[in-house]
Design a protein around this nucleic acid. Structure first.
Lengths: 348, 348
DNA sequence: TTGAAAGCGATACCAA
DNA sequence: TTGGTATCGCTTTCAA
């Protein structure tokens, strides 16, 4: 196989002393004005009126020098940044999250924020908070992958972070919290299975770390629905490997289950295949339902039933972030943040 | 369904004038030393000897105040940051990339860099470059999702960015380029199909935007292999929807293909299911192979053959980034960056 | 061993 | 309408 590592053709890296980075003073000098004027022109400061010829000279000088303002200097002077920090742990998987992230970033950029994701794998909550705080972001928006402890919130607050927003399974103290109703996902799944005559329901609990924040509440929701109907729920630990699924399927007769909620479509697909290979008829012997409504679920036979989840829209969260930064956020206008509904196909 | 937006219980947001953020001057005051001493202690400056009691007083004061250094001020003073910017467009899909990203971030943090991902959807190359340049990162590492034009490189260079590194399908001018051999993926797939007696090979070309950087080279690689063996390659545009797959499968008889390379496992799974539903026997009538070696490919029947791709390790890329920033990167030590091999299962 | 002070780049007040 | 200048928080040289 071929491969290559290429270097810049010229010697611009390292050796050659890089041409000094242009500052607003350089722009001022070239345009023959003061630095203040440069600032006024480049920021379109409306409180000050600058003649059009001067404006043009300044802009031309900036263009010629390739001037780019220095965010750190601006931040220092302003006393605050326009940075919004999105901590991420495991890179969010699935079209649900990735679409959401793109929307959010786009909407925040329209509001003149600079959005960055900060990978925080392997950092304890408060170490992570200190790392974030060094950047003095205007806001931190946690999507529930990274734990935000009260101590972490305190660190951020004392560092001048205007808003801490958490989106997750439960409210985090001291933050603006958007609580996504994860139990509801398990509940609608269980209700559907019960309504179609099932009584002993297995609920997959992924063994992969980092999913506990979601799987626990979904299990609880299923339990709630089962108790209300006199049905039984059995937790089923499962790793995302073929071996684990085969092992679980092998125990199926002794478990005596007539239905299973697979946590999400991926785990459900994995388990369904293992069950079929073990001679279990789906949905005859056991009904199977997943969650997330992945396209792939329609490719198996029987087609996989699923719980469709509607997430809050990125644009709305962006507006909330802006309000929180400005201190104008309120608790009015509450609306559904997470809507769950069953899509019945062939596996249940 | 239930939902809620919660606010901080106390009135810390907006109204209450937030307690001033502690600076190193505050720490100095509390510890009864100068700001210089604080800096020495907190940065473990080895060139200066500070008595142990003093060090402890400073550290204690910092702890008590919840002091967190101000990255912008440090950057301004130092003349450079320790920021590494990873532009992302579409959130990287698949376990291959997400594992890689985590490794890279972890390794760079060990080298004392601050890594952030910058979502750059919907920004033209040079606008994006200006946005990145405002942050004055030490390095920009593009994973091929965002185009890095020569103009963009120039903007970054003039803003003092020490290293621009691109990982993608081809070298980008003026950057350290890691060229991943995408054609090789298509080539090994086609070679395998030809070796098993296939002669008319379809190659899926995803219609989704942003995948062109990968699909084109893979198609070219397949073409190369086919030409060498006197076989034929037919490009097959396909959107990632069930309808598109069904429509393509309906045209199958007139296409007269005896094999298809599905671009990756997801497209391959989608198409294989549509083919089966249309009465095409896999692999009897038509062989199918994907790429990426997803677990899900093993869940279909027949099990999906695939091209397994080994990506460069995050830790190695981190080392290269560090060398590039320090100007010590060289072109020696070339090694495979991307290795492709066929995993034959049942669909081919 | 510690302190005083200059200066990084951009902005906004106050004069002119 | 434009310019001079103090200031943000931190690091580092030079003096003490």
């Amino acid at each position: 196989m071929s491969q290559s590592i290429e270097q810049p053709a010229d010697g611009t890296t390292g050796r050659t002393p890089v041409r000094a980075v242009p500052t607003s003073a350089d722009v001022a000098r070239l345009a023959g004005v003061s630095r203040a004027t440069v600032s006024y022109v480049l920021n379109n400061t409306s409180a000050v009126r600058i003649s059009e010829p001067t404006r043009e000279r300044v802009r031309e000088a900036a263009r010629e020098l390739g001037y780019v303002p220095h965010a750190a200097a601006r931040t220092l002077r302003a006393g605050h940044s326009r940075l919004v920090l999105l901590p991420t742990a495991h890179v969010p998987v699935g079209p649900l999250y990735s679409g959401f992230f793109n929307d959010l970033q786009w909407a925040l950029r329209r509001l003149d924020y600079t959005v960055v994701q900060y990978g925080s794998v392997g950092l304890a909550a408060e170490d992570a908070a200190r790392a974030w705080a060094e950047l003095r972001p205007a806001a931190v928006v946690s999507m529930g992958e990274v734990e935000v402890t009260p101590g972490a919130v305190e660190i951020l607050r004392r560092s001048g972070v205007k808003a801490v927003i958490t989106v997750g399974t439960r409210a985090a103290e001291g933050t603006h919290s958007l609580v996504l109703d994860q139990p509801r996902v398990g509940e609608v799944a269980a209700e559907h299975l019960i309504a179609t005559g099932r009584r002993r329901i297995g609920v997959v609990v992924p063994e992969e770390p980092g999913l506990g924040m979601f799987s626990g509440p979904r299990l609880d929701g299923a339990r709630r629905a089962a108790e209300a109907a006199g049905a039984t729920v059995v937790p089923l630990p499962l790793a995302y490997t073929e071996e684990s699924a085969v092992a679980l399927a092998a125990r199926w007769p002794e478990l005596g289950l007539d239905a299973v909620f697979g946590y999400n479509d991926e785990y459900a697909m994995l388990l369904m295949r293992a069950l079929q290979d073990a001679g279990v008829d789906v949905p005859g012997d056991t009904a199977v339902i997943g969650a997330d409504d992945l396209l792939l679920g329609r490719l198996l036979r029987p087609r996989l039933s699923t719980v469709h989840i509607d997430l809050i829209e990125g644009g709305e969260l962006a507006a909330l972030v802006d309000d929180a930064v400005n201190g104008t956020a309120d608790a009015t206008g509450r609306r559904p943040l997470l809507d769950s509904r069953v899509i019945v196909r062939e596996s249940s």
